[in-house]
Design a protein around this nucleic acid. Structure first.
Length: 296
DNA sequence: GACCAGGCAAAGT
DNA sequence: ACTTTGCATGGT
């Protein structure tokens, strides 16, 4: 077992990182202790006192550090976004330990096709099942629970949509998953090439894929291609923007996306994540309180 | 049992 | 170009 110890981190809170909706292959073990899968490794990240520990069987520490985006100065980003913006100041004081993970483009691409009109809980479950069905078994250095790698483009392009529907419970997204995988396998979609292009060209290519619209495209940009000049507008971001920035007035998603990019520029992706987490967690808290009142 | 979930695609204006 | 409708599934 190998271990990384990080000290003096001002922006590294495991719960903020894993529960902000960017990644789906993780499990909460305890407060600020998470198990997660990165490439072919089962790893754990924990916050202990004022240090962060990352555990697992890995050989290259830099790979792990890069995954957690450790070369980016989040203090500078947070300072810039907080300036003249009371809403983001609040959101950042709530979830300022968030970091944008540098995830695999193919995994991100398939995961967010699955996310369409779905719940995070179901998305996680479908991805877990897909991995069990088609991915290779991984070494788990922690206990006897079985984990599987996210399937490769080849493994998923050979999958049968009916099987995905039946066992992974992906519903109408099942066929899209296989077609999208085949398009990567055939070279129609090439992530290394896409990384070199401008956003409008990337959009043109990715919107050809069934299951990818503007929102899923923005998520692939942000989480898979590392483009932080992106602003995915889902139901939560729509809600938080309307409630906190537009005084309760409704706006369509296209306008909200344009406005987000205009306000936050190259930092739009970070702003979006702080806002998403802030809105969703506070909504969950409200629900819980309602429940407690009902029980009295 | 209606309504919602990190929307998309197709049909209708 | 903008707006509505159907879509699998699981949770509340």
């Amino acid at each position: 077992m190998n271990k990384i110890i990080l000290k003096g981190q001002t922006s590294f809170v495991p719960s903020h990182i894993f529960e902000c909706g960017q990644a789906f292959r993780w499990k909460k073990l305890d407060d600020e202790a998470y198990r997660f899968i990165f490439r072919d490794m089962v790893l754990e990240a924990r916050s202990i006192d004022d240090s962060i520990e990352i555990l697992g069987d890995f050989s290259d520490k830099n790979e792990i550090l890069n995954y957690f985006d450790l070369n980016t100065d989040y203090d500078a980003i947070k300072a810039k976004l907080s300036l003249n913006d009371e809403i983001l100041t609040k959101a950042i004081s709530f979830g300022g330990g968030m970091r944008i993970l540098k995830q695999d483009p193919f995994e991100t691409y398939i995961s967010f096709i699955i996310s369409a009109n779905n719940q995070i809980k179901n998305i996680k479950n479908t991805i877990k099942k897909l991995s069990q069905m088609y991915g290779k078994k991984l070494n788990n250095p922690f206990d006897d629970e079985e984990y599987y790698a996210f399937p490769t483009q080849l493994e998923l392009s050979n999958a049968k949509p009916e099987d995905i529907k039946e066992y992974a419970r992906a519903g109408f997204r099942s066929e899209r998953i296989v077609i999208a995988s085949k398009m990567v396998q055939e070279g129609i979609i090439n992530f290394d090439e896409l990384k070199e292009k401008n956003i409008d060209d990337i959009r043109k290519t990715l919107l050809e894929v069934p299951g990818i619209g503007e929102k899923v495209f923005q998520c692939i940009l942000l989480f898979g291609l590392g483009r932080t000049d992106s602003f995915p507008v889902d139901v939560w971001v729509k809600r938080v923007m309307e409630e906190l920035y537009y005084g309760g007035e409704e706006r369509n998603k296209k306008l909200i996306q344009e406005d987000g990019l205009r306000r936050f520029g190259d930092l739009s992706g970070y702003a979006q994540q702080y806002l998403f987490y802030y809105m969703r967690e506070n909504f969950k808290k409200m629900k819980k309180e309602e429940k407690n009142v009902d029980n009295k």
